[in-house]
Write a protein that binds this DNA or RNA. Structure first.
Length: 177
DNA sequence: AAGGTGATACCA
DNA sequence: GGTATCACCTTG
């Protein structure tokens, strides 16, 4: 009998978890293990320690602020899938889509384990465009496991969004351990 | 303080 | 088609 990861990893976060509101989920991800299985079978397990929330077309820092495009269309799917995009020609960003169908929101994973900075993290985990749309609830190569909710965390403004209007630049939607 | 690097999303 | 714009990281 072939066992799936779902059976081997009962602690994997289920789809229902990701369908909550993005600002509910963002702090809950802190302290949870991000797990990547490489092609050779190696398991990398890193504790998430920094995330940012992006929510809706009215959020002028969010990639969906101009509406739906080919790049951001996965943000409009129901929560639990992955949004990947390339920035500055070099770095892949790992984002977790949250919420319900047709409402664009996602969480950027900015740090996990010893890796600070989303570019370094994605590189360390060998993540690229092939993970666009990956289903975290069923994927054999990328998922997040449950862990106790952390008691304390810090909130600050989001990074690298100088193009957004002040009210969106200043909002504390970055969560760090 | 500045440059590398390329997909995306506009404009024409 | 051309081109401006980046949720970054490294080097000096």
């Amino acid at each position: 009998m072939i066992c799936s990861d779902i059976q081997q990893n009962p602690d994997r976060l289920a789809r229902e978890f990701y369908q909550q509101e993005v600002l509910t989920i963002a702090p809950l991800l802190l302290g949870k293990p991000l797990v990547r299985r490489l092609d050779d079978g190696t398991l990398l397990r890193l504790t998430i320690n920094e995330v940012e929330a992006y929510r809706g077309e009215e959020d002028l820092a969010c990639h969906a602020r101009f509406g739906r495009t080919a790049r951001n269309s996965v943000m409009y799917q129901q929560g639990g899938v992955v949004y990947m995009y390339l920035i500055y020609g070099m770095y892949w960003m790992l984002n977790v889509v949250t919420g319900s169908h047709d409402f664009p929101e996602a969480i950027l994973i900015r740090g996990a384990g010893a890796y600070n900075g989303p570019g370094k993290l994605a590189k360390a985990l060998a993540l690229d465009k092939s993970f666009y749309g990956e289903d975290l609830a069923t994927s054999e190569r990328l998922w997040i496991e449950d862990a106790p909710t952390v008691g304390y965390y810090k909130t600050t403004p989001r990074i690298g969004i100088g193009y957004a209007a002040k009210e969106w630049r200043d909002i504390h939607w970055r969560f760090t351990l």
